[in-house]
Nucleic acid binder design. Sequence first.
DNA 1: ACCCAGGCATTGG
DNA 2: CCAATGCATGGG
Length: 272
Amino acid sequence: MAFLAVPQPFDFEHTTERFRAFGPDLANLWHDGGLHRVVDGREVRIEAAPGGVDVEPLDDEISPDVLRLLGAEFDLVAFRPTEPRLAGVVGRLGGFRPPIATDPFEMLVGAITAQQISMRAAYAVRNRFVERFGTRAELAYAFPTTERVAKLAPDELTAVGYSRRKAACIIALAQSPVDFDALAELPDEEVKAALVALPGIGDWTADWFLARHLGRPRAWPAGDLALRKVVSDFYGDGRLLTTKEVEEIGARFDPFQNLTAQYLLLGHRMPA
DNA sequence: ACCCAGGCATTGG
DNA sequence: CCAATGCATGGG
């Protein structure tokens, strides 16, 4: 068990809430007070420690992924909103670092899975997918690889609960030659344009890719139903604001739209 | 038995 | 730009 320092402020429980909130996630498995994930073929356990986390095993291959997973790259020191409603949430959830989804394929498949259906339903479907086509290490599963998924037949995905359209899109994504390393070098709008050109990926999925995989500060998934609800509740007039209205409201949080969205959503899941 | 859930693609105003 | 449609599962 080796100690890994995480930039302060940092709250392990708030940061890992996502991996407990919607039921278990077999690829990011909460077990007995710690988070288990397969990194480079090895299962890693992460648990809370003063000033950071204890990690087992830990080496130079693993630590960058763990730090990204714990949202170390976000600038929480600069994120000091003055707007009262948001400031209240940030004060209450201090040290929350939005987790980065380190693997782009896993992130996009997870997002496609969650399109339109409830998070509970999405987790159930995705876990069946991970269990059937992934590789179990000890407790956690390595997410299914693009190579494996590229060879699947649509029926194998509908069998675990995907719609025919989602099944086709996930297989097409696995077969597509998209270069995620190259994408990561592009500005937000160009990343979005490249992703939205792929079947089954729209504004919502591309925005969450910017937010949760690339950690782009200005990512703002204005079409997200849960975000629309929180923003409507805080800044609206009683009705559910449209995507376009939420998009416009995002400007007042510039350049911290991503942190704002994730704090608002966590605040919504963890009421005062 | 419905209805809604952290959408998308398509068609048609 | 907006409205309507079908899709799959899980929870209320």
